[in-house]
Design a protein around this nucleic acid. Structure first.
Lengths: 150, 150
DNA sequence: CGAACTGTATGTGTGTTACCGTACAGACGT
DNA sequence: ACGTCTGTACGGTAACACACATACAGTTCG
């Protein structure tokens, strides 16, 4: 059966809806709440729960397919893909460094101390890897999907 | 006289040109290469150096004005603004946490260890604050602006 | 088969991005 | 006063991103 996800759409953030869907699905996978082979909500099901158009969910899902995060099987559904993309160490470094620099600039801009910024990153990093460790055992996954539209 | 910046436009990144300009000017300010009162290149000057349309630079500059990062003075030029935005601690935390989470998800996705990710963040964070410390003394700023167009 | 689920494909409207050209208005040195 | 630097403000065009609506095609089960 299809897993029920707790996805929230923030219409005020300015971020595209399809990208918010992508990010939150990635988050579930990264934290271990979703693992290889798990079935995602169907396109229409998720679209209805979020009160967005099915094609918007299609956009999110197909993008995730291109990133080899999930698989789409015609007539069957969407599933978490098996492997990791074999990115080279250099590419990994570059990708992470890009985000890290953005974070560094923003913190400096608002006058936040580097120590505090680092502590926040440490928290988020730790949150994911700890959830990952105990995932799939007690946690059954959250309730229904819910959105907030104006 | 107007400072000469070393700004690079990557047409393959997919990021809007005006945003790349914004980000890199923010970086110079965050790192201390540009401080309050410094004059930026004029709109036409920067546009010509980057081989982009002046209106694109206008877009970048006016956005930076809205964020209170720079000031535009009619007939005189563009200058680094004085104050920081007085964002609340909660808002700061939320903004930084958003980026931190994205970083955590991406690293988990590609299988990078949290320790390594943290080390990279530490580097970028340190790079900015150290440049900030010794800035404006020896460093005179880079040479001419340069772009890369297809 | 046929109903009810699944993903897939094709248009359509709106907004953003970037471009080009032209014109206006403030600041400053000669 | 004049020329030349500065930012500001129009109009219009082309390409693309985003979300929507509708129709098509594969899978499964009674």
């Amino acid at each position: 059966m299809a897993v029920r996800l707790h996805i929230q759409i923030d219409t005020l953030s300015g971020l595209p809806v399809y990208r918010q869907i992508m990010d939150q699905i990635k988050y579930y996978i990264a934290s271990g709440s979703l693992v290889t082979g798990d079935q995602l909500p169907s396109i229409r099901e998720l679209a209805q729960a979020l009160t967005v158009n099915p094609t918007t969910v299609v956009k999110a899902y197909t993008e995730l397919v291109h990133e080899a995060v999930i698989e789409l099987r015609h007539g069957k559904g969407a599933f978490v893909a098996s492997g990791y993309n074999p990115l080279s160490v250099e590419q990994q470094d570059k990708a992470v460094r890009r985000i890290a620099r953005q974070l560094a600039v923003e913190t400096a801009q608002m006058g936040m101390s580097p120590e505090r910024a680092l502590r926040i990153v440490e928290e988020e990093l730790g949150a994911i890897s700890s959830e990952r460790a105990e995932a799939k055992a007690p946690v059954k996954l959250k309730v229904v999907a819910s959105g907030s539209r104006s």
